[in-house]
């Protein structure tokens, strides 16, 4: 089974402890992304690391703040650099301005492709410009962002063809027109299955869908159906054809 789990931000917004607690009740969830999406959440996450119970988890990553207000770029970088070295740091390209500084993170820096609200990092070409500046950086493919821009998933395919060797993890959810992370339903599942072949079995699937606690297990099921094992959930070309009269 592919490594799968939730973003604590999707489970409990800035309360990563609560997010971990909710995830612990899910036996199949062996990957987690600790979320510090707002910059004021980053220091408390660092302060609490020593007390975190990460037992039973095979994969841990951290989501860096997506917008900087109370912290400067350097302050953010320094705090992120202090995280355990084994944890990939998921970063939105729009907070990266001082490339030389971010290069120091090497492969720990994991750039995510963006949705339609951003003007960079949305497709293979825009990511290429960033990876040229950050040659060791890895890649977090957000399939929901890719599908929001391109329902056919051609952009996701092209990103995987060009940057697949950097792939470190996936973000999975359906994404609405204003960037809302929604549950993965049939249309998203069929679309994601189109690229499943290019996602290695070992690549963690981090779910960002915002769902109530009693829908967490079904959400894992839906995501695994789309992606695993090796996209067996792919409906095939004719599945989109209208039903016969």
């Amino acid at each position: 089974m592919r490594p799968v789990g939730f973003s604590t931000g999707a489970l409990a917004k800035g309360d990563y402890r609560r997010g971990l607690e909710l995830q612990r009740a899910l036996p199949r969830a062996r990957a987690v992304e600790l979320s510090a999406l707002r910059d004021h959440e980053l220091q408390p996450l660092l302060d609490g690391l020593g007390e975190l119970d990460l037992g039973g988890l095979d994969y841990v990553s951290v989501h860096a703040p997506s917008k900087l207000g109370s912290l400067s770029e350097r302050e953010t970088f320094e705090r992120l650099a202090a995280l355990p070295e084994a944890w990939p740091i998921i970063v939105h390209p729009c907070i990266v301005h001082s490339f030389a500084m971010w290069r120091e993170l090497g492969p720990r820096l994991c750039l995510e492709n963006m949705d339609n609200r951003k003007t960079t990092g949305r497709n293979a070409a825009e990511l290429r410009v960033l990876f040229e500046q950050l040659p060791e950086a890895t890649f977090c493919l957000d399939v929901g962002h890719a599908r929001q821009i391109d329902p056919t998933m051609a952009l996701a395919l092209l990103m995987l063809h060009e940057h697949g060797s950097r792939l470190r993890q996936l973000h999975v959810s359906d994404v609405g027109p204003r960037g809302e992370h929604q549950p993965v339903r049939a249309l998203a599942r069929w679309a994601f299955a189109r690229v499943a072949r290019l996602v290695p079995e070992s690549c963690p699937l981090i779910i960002e869908s915002v769902v109530p606690p009693d829908r967490l297990e079904p959400e894992i099921e839906a995501v695994l159906e789309a992606f695993g094992p090796m996209g067996s959930g792919a409906p095939g070309l004719d599945a989109s054809a209208p039903p016969a009269p």
Binding site: T152, M153, A154, L155, L157, L158, H161, R194, R197
Partner: peptide
């Protein structure tokens, strides 16, 4: 040239 399946080929042709 990257397309391994017909579906991938058609998605990329479409693009």
């Amino acid at each position: 040239e990257h397309a391994e399946t017909e579906e991938e080929h058609l998605i990329l042709l479409s693009e």
